[in-house]
Amino acid sequence: MLFSSEQQLNNDEQQQFWQSVTQSTLEKNDVSLAYAYIQHSDSSKAIVISSGRVESYLKYKELMFDLYQHGYSIYILDHRGQGLSSRITTNPHQGHIDKFQTYIDDLNDFVELIVNPNKHKNLYLVGHSMGGTIGTLYMEQYPTTFNAAVFSAPMYGIKLPFNKTFIRSLAGLLDTCNDKQPHKQPNYVLGGTDYEPVEFEKNHLTNSPNRYQQILDVFNQNPSIQLGSPTNRWLLEAMDAADRATKAAALSIKPIMVLQALDDEIVDNAAQNRAENIHCQIRRIANCQHEVFIEADDARNQALRTLVSFFDKY
Rank of each mutant, 00 (worst) to 15 (best):
Glu140Asn: 13
Met155Phe: 04
Ala271Pro: 03
Lys184Phe: 09
Asn178Gly: 12
Asp175Cys: 13
Thr206Asp: 01
Ile256Arg: 00
Asp264Arg: 03
Leu160Phe: 03
Ala250Ser: 13
Met139Leu: 12
Met239His: 03
Arg168Val: 12
Pro223Gln: 04
Val150Met: 00
Asp179Lys: 13
Glu237Ala: 10
Pro230Glu: 10
Gln213Ala: 15
Thr145Leu: 07
Pro186Val: 11
Ala242Lys: 00
Gly192Val: 05
Val198Pro: 02
Ala241Lys: 09
Ser169Glu: 14
Asn187Tyr: 01
Ala171Ser: 13
Val258Ile: 15
Pro143Lys: 03
Ser224Thr: 14
Met155Trp: 02
Leu251Gly: 10
Ala238Pro: 04
Thr193Asp: 08
Thr206Gly: 03
Cys177Gln: 15
Thr193Phe: 00
Met155Thr: 05
Pro255Gln: 10
Asp194Pro: 06
Val267Lys: 02
Leu251Trp: 00
Asn178Val: 02
Ala241Gly: 13
Glu265Arg: 02
Asp175Ser: 13
Pro197Gln: 07
Asn232Gln: 09
Asn210Met: 13
Gln213Glu: 15
Ala270Thr: 15
Pro255Ala: 10
Gly157Arg: 00
Gly172Trp: 00
Lys247Arg: 14
Leu235Glu: 05
Met239Val: 10
Asn232Asp: 11
Glu140Cys: 07
Ala245Phe: 05
Ile167Met: 10
Met257Pro: 03
Asn207Thr: 14
Pro186Asp: 11
Ala171Gly: 08
Leu251Gln: 14
Met155Glu: 06
Phe151Asn: 00
Gln221Asp: 15
Leu170Cys: 10
Ser252Cys: 04
Gln260Thr: 06
Pro230Met: 12
Gln185Ile: 12
Leu236Trp: 01
Ala149Ile: 11
Met257Ile: 12
Leu236Met: 04
Ala153Leu: 03
Pro230Phe: 07
Val218Tyr: 01
Gln181Cys: 06
Gln221Ile: 09
Lys159Cys: 03
Thr206Met: 02
Asp263Asn: 12
Met257Tyr: 08
His204Glu: 14
Pro161Met: 05
Phe146Ser: 10
Gly192Thr: 08
His183Thr: 15
Asp243Glu: 15
Pro230Thr: 12
Gln185Ala: 14
Gly157Ala: 04
Thr231Gly: 09
Ile167Asn: 06
Gln226Lys: 08
Asp240Gln: 13
Gly191Glu: 03
Val218Thr: 15
Glu237His: 02
Thr144Gln: 15
Trp234Gly: 08
Lys159Ala: 04
Tyr142Pro: 04
Asp243Phe: 01
Met155Ala: 11
Gln226Thr: 06
Gln226His: 01
Ile253Gln: 10
Ser252Val: 07
Asn163Trp: 08
Asp217Lys: 07
Asp243Arg: 09
Cys177Asp: 08
Gln260Ser: 13
His204Tyr: 08
Ala270Lys: 15
Arg233Thr: 15
Lys254Cys: 11
Ser152Asp: 03
Leu216Met: 14
Tyr142Met: 09
Met239Tyr: 01
Ile253Ala: 10
Arg233Leu: 13
Ala261Ile: 07
Lys180Trp: 04
Pro223Glu: 08
Gln181Arg: 06
Leu174Cys: 11
Asn269Asp: 13
